[in-house]
Simulated scan of single mutants.
Amino acid sequence: MPTIKTEYLGELRTEATHLQSGTVIITDAPTDNQGKGEAFSPTDLVAGALGSCMITIMGIAARRDGIDLKGSEMEITKGMSADAPRRIARVEVRLNMLTDRELSAEEQARLERAAHTCPVALSLHPDIEQAVEFVWNVAEKA
Rank of each mutant, 00 (worst) to 15 (best):
Q130F: 04
P126Y: 03
P42C: 01
N137E: 15
R110G: 03
L95D: 04
W136T: 02
N96C: 09
R113Y: 08
S81Q: 13
A61Y: 14
G35K: 03
I67L: 08
S72A: 11
M74R: 11
A47E: 00
V132R: 01
M97Y: 02
H125K: 10
E15G: 08
S52C: 13
I88H: 01
V93A: 08
A62Q: 11
E106M: 12
S52W: 05
A82N: 10
G79T: 15
V93H: 00
K78E: 01
R94F: 07
P2S: 12
P2V: 05
E129G: 10
S41G: 09
L12W: 01
Q130Y: 06
T77E: 12
A61Q: 11
A82F: 08
K70C: 12
P2C: 06
G59S: 14
F40S: 00
G51L: 02
D68G: 09
A62G: 10
P30S: 07
E38W: 08
P119Y: 08
V91I: 15
M1I: 00
E102K: 14
G59W: 05
H125Q: 11
M74W: 08
A62P: 10
S104E: 10
H125A: 09
K5C: 00
V24G: 01
M58W: 08
N33L: 14
G66M: 09
S72E: 02
R113H: 13
I60G: 08
G35Y: 06
T56Q: 12
E112M: 05
D28L: 03
K78D: 00
R94L: 14
A114L: 08
Q108V: 10
V93F: 03
